[in-house]
Amino acid sequence: MNNAFIIGQYIPGESIIHRLDPRTKITIIFFFVIIVFFANSIASYGLLTVFSIGSALATRIKLSYIIKGLTPVWFLIIFTFILHLVVTREGDVLFELLSFPVYSGAVAQGSAISLRFFLLILVTSLLTLTTSPIEITDAIESLLHPLKRIKFPVHELALMMSISLRFIPTLMQETEKISKAQASRGVDFKTGPIKERLQAIVPLLVPLFVSAFKRAEELAMAMEARGYQGGEGRTKLRELKIKPIDIVTFGIFCLIIIGLYLTRT
């Protein structure tokens, strides 16, 4: 919470992107990840960039916040770019960098791959930024529903995910409590040689596991007492509904695919 890294974070809001059915978002991202690899011209890359930045703006989350939040990823992108400059040997030599010849093909390929990488990360982080974890879980359950026929435990998987989400804050609080109790007994988590610091984790992990197992046992009992007998015959309170906005968004995305096809060389 105190760092600005935004991958995996959810920022509640009321934007169009927030209101989209999570299944729409997941499906579009799934296809986006594929079509990014079909872009091969400046125009096609331009089209995808406009789509991604446009979507980011539509979330009403400050673009600068998103860009800054991707800082660690920026390093990877720049690193990828430099690697291409050094390794790729196609086209004409443009100039020499620290006695390494830099080819024109390297610049082109490096930029293309870095841009792809950036667009992928940007679009996928838009999903987590605008969709609460529980909505993602619901969407996964609904999208994987057909797999039930081959006995894939879709419902159990979704329930497991939602229970994990429910217990993350509880276990975080617990971790803090136990580490404070052990610090009061003289454990030093922050200074000293690495070996000692690793050892200091044992008094934290053991109680955490003991308590997690106890919680699991009690929760299982409570669930049984409340009549849980697996997914058979269950109804659901949470329901997903495709709204007109989802259909429009799909339409736009199809146009992007057609545009991509036309702008390819």
Partner: peptide, 27 residues
């Protein structure tokens, strides 16, 4: 049944989902 530990019987991610849990189980 209501158990001792308030945390270890709360199944839903929100209040509404938690109350729904028992109803969902019963279809």
């Amino acid at each position: 049944m209501v158990f001792q530990n308030p945390d270890n019987q709360f199944v839903g991610t929100t209040v509404r989902d938690d109350v729904a849990f028992g109803l969902e189980n019963r279809g």
